[in-house]
């Protein structure tokens, strides 16, 4: 068990190193940082002096090591555009994106899992066919169209919900949260639904497919044969077995939700990481882009680690260590 976690952490370090290298290459090879920073009137000597001061004349490997070292220490450099430390810019934007992503995830799970179970247990019902059809339409429409449609219906026509921004926010330490005001929730709802629709459909279809598979398995049939109450069979036996593969996909998807919230954030002018990234691209703000890359990779790695741990929590067959602590493996 411990060995397993350590192994995963070591793997993660390698992944992060590779991503850091990519981010560094972006810095180093996409355009010349000195010409980006200085105007036309800066003399060649001054440029050369700046280059020297910034250490851009040092060997490549040395520069990369320094870059990684500073990253680890939390020093992400300065933005070309705003002249602020990138670390602060990212830290300001992370709460918005995380809250949006988590709420989208919760919506998709709260609707997707029950809908998946329902459609699996009543696989031929009219309701099931309706749900499947609707969600199929749901995934086929691009995210931005869904966003715009929601804005049009709930924001413009009905005027129930705001169409952009985060609404009222509360500061808790450095964390700017919109989860503690009604206004904040009203602003959060539309973008979260937009972002969660795809994930919802995927979760539902996955739960449905897995659940139908599990319901055909021998242990469920054996449970039926010995008269275990149907409620327990569905929700205790079958659902838990369904969750093992579902968690993997949902976990991977969550990384994706955080990373690709760009479209939703841009439609709703949501001040999160995605919007920051878009702005940075527009101004060729390479330091921000590089750090964004690293932060997103870090999320992916973290989520995958959590998924692995959840696996072990759910499936006793993976807890090899326990077996050897207590009982012999086979008797």
């Amino acid at each position: 068990m411990v060995y397993f976690i350590l192994k995963r952490i070591v793997q993660s370090v390698f992944v992060m190193a590779a991503v850091a290298f990519l981010a560094f290459s972006l810095f180093r090879f996409v355009g010349d940082p000195v010409t980006q920073m200085t105007g036309v009137e800066t003399s060649v000597e001054d440029q050369e002096r700046l280059r020297d001061e910034l250490g851009l004349n040092d060997p490549f490997v040395y520069q990369f090591v320094r870059f990684t070292h500073e990253m680890v220490l939390g020093d992400f450099g300065f933005s070309y555009r705003t002249r602020q430390p990138v670390a602060n810019m990212i830290a300001d934007r992370i709460p918005a994106t995380l809250e949006l992503g988590v709420v989208a995830l919760i919506i998709s799970l709260m609707v997707g899992v029950p809908a998946g179970v329902y459609t699996a247990l009543n696989s031929r019902g009219v309701m099931t066919q309706t749900i499947l059809m609707t969600t199929l339409v749901g995934v086929s429409i691009p995210t931005f169209v869904i966003g715009i449609m929601l804005i049009f219906i709930f924001g413009v026509q009905l005027g129930w919900l705001p169409t952009f921004g985060r609404g009222g926010t509360v500061h808790i330490g450095n964390w700017q949260s919109s989860l503690f005001t009604i206004d904040g929730w009203r602003a959060l709802l539309l973008p979260a639904i937009t972002l969660g629709v795809y994930q919802l459909t995927l979760t539902m279809r996955l739960v449905r497919a897995e659940m139908m598979e599990v319901m055909r398995s021998d242990y469920i049939r054996f449970g039926m044969a010995r008269g275990v109450p149907m409620r327990s069979l569905y929700y205790k036996h079958a659902l838990k077995n369904t969750l093992v593969p579902v968690i993997t996909i949902v976990g991977l998807q969550f990384g994706g939700v955080i990373a690709f919230s760009i479209v939703t954030e841009s439609v709703f002018q949501w001040p999160g990481l995605g919007l920051l990234f878009l702005e940075s691209i527009r101004f060729v703000d390479i330091p921000v882009m590089g750090v964004y890359l690293v932060v997103i990779a870090f999320f992916f790695v973290l989520v995958n680690l959590v998924v692995d741990l959840l696996y072990v929590a759910i499936d006793p067959r993976l807890r090899i260590r326990d077996v050897h602590d207590g009982l012999p493996e086979k008797i």
Binding site: F222, G227, P316
Partner: peptide, 24 residues
């Protein structure tokens, strides 16, 4: 019928590897 299953009739399956819930 479901009430009666287990109570009066029960069943043993072929493969003991797959007929028990692995997570309980």
């Amino acid at each position: 019928a479901h009430e009666l299953r287990g109570d009066r009739i029960s069943m043993i399956f072929q493969d003991p590897q797959t007929s028990l819930n692995p997570l309980m």
